[in-house]
């Protein structure tokens, strides 16, 4: 217990960092992933190829490499000065979006063709058909796998510790410097993640229940 209470502010700041990274990356990856899924099912060949290329490149790259790129290679490109935190967010968003894209695309395939035909017949453009009719139904049908991807993202934030963004995964390193029992310290970190995943699981259950009655 001492490990936790003696270092409460370390734990607090660590998990706060995790939560901030997660929230930004979750929102960003859901938006980018849905747009990419739209590109992959669009009638424009260039967009389709871009989506496929993106997914196949990013999905097959280890997250560590993606984050290392933003940590060490990006500053040398001298494009714009971005803080470590935001570079970690960008890396996580780009990486997770590839997985979100594939989940949402499988959701699009569950929406009957007639739904898109009806909206085209009413005069909707492709973009409107996607945003008003297809995507809302596609996302409803993939809430459980989408939650999986987001839980994986939550845990992937620990890799950002690799380049000095303070988050929960980096707590143990600080503890060992201060001479505490690292093993016990890590158990508290694991418990912390369990607590963080809980709201996601509850949200998934809630959305599933609400949306299944609507169909």
């Amino acid at each position: 217990m001492n490990v936790l209470f003696d270092n409460l502010s370390l734990y607090g700041n660590g998990f706060l960092g995790t939560i901030k990274l997660f929230l930004v990356a979750a929102v960003g990856s859901l938006i980018l992933g849905t747009v990419l899924a739209g590109a992959r099912v669009s009638p424009v060949p260039v967009l389709r190829s871009f989506g496929t290329l993106y997914v196949n490149t990013i999905r097959n790259t280890p997250l560590t490499l993606v984050l290392f790129f933003f940590a060490f290679a990006y500053p040398r490109l001298e494009i714009a000065d971005v803080s470590f935190f935001w570079r970690a967010c960008i890396g996580l968003i780009l990486y997770t979006a590839a997985f979100v894209c594939e989940v949402v695309r499988s959701g699009v395939n569950t929406v009957p063709v007639g739904q898109a035909e009806a909206s085209r017949a009413l005069g909707f453009t492709f973009g409107q058909t996607m945003t008003e009719v297809v995507m809302p139904q596609a996302i409803r049908s993939v809430v459980p796998p989408l939650t999986n991807v987001q839980i994986a993202l939550l845990k992937n934030t620990t890799i950002a510790a690799g380049f000095s963004v303070l988050e929960a995964g980096g707590i143990y390193a600080n503890l060992s410097e201060r001479g505490y029992n690292v093993f016990v310290g890590l158990l508290w970190v694991a418990l912390g993640f369990l607590v963080l995943v809980l709201p996601l699981t509850l949200l998934q259950r809630n959305l599933d229940r609400r949306w299944s009655t609507a169909r």
Partner: peptide, 24 residues
């Protein structure tokens, strides 16, 4: 295909065999 076609389709109502009401 494109915006002009969408505008023209808006003037043509269509009713399908399988209704195709927006399920959500």
């Amino acid at each position: 295909e494109g915006k002009a076609l969408a505008a023209l389709r808006a003037d043509v109502g269509m009713v399908f065999q399988s209704f195709n009401l927006f399920a959500h």
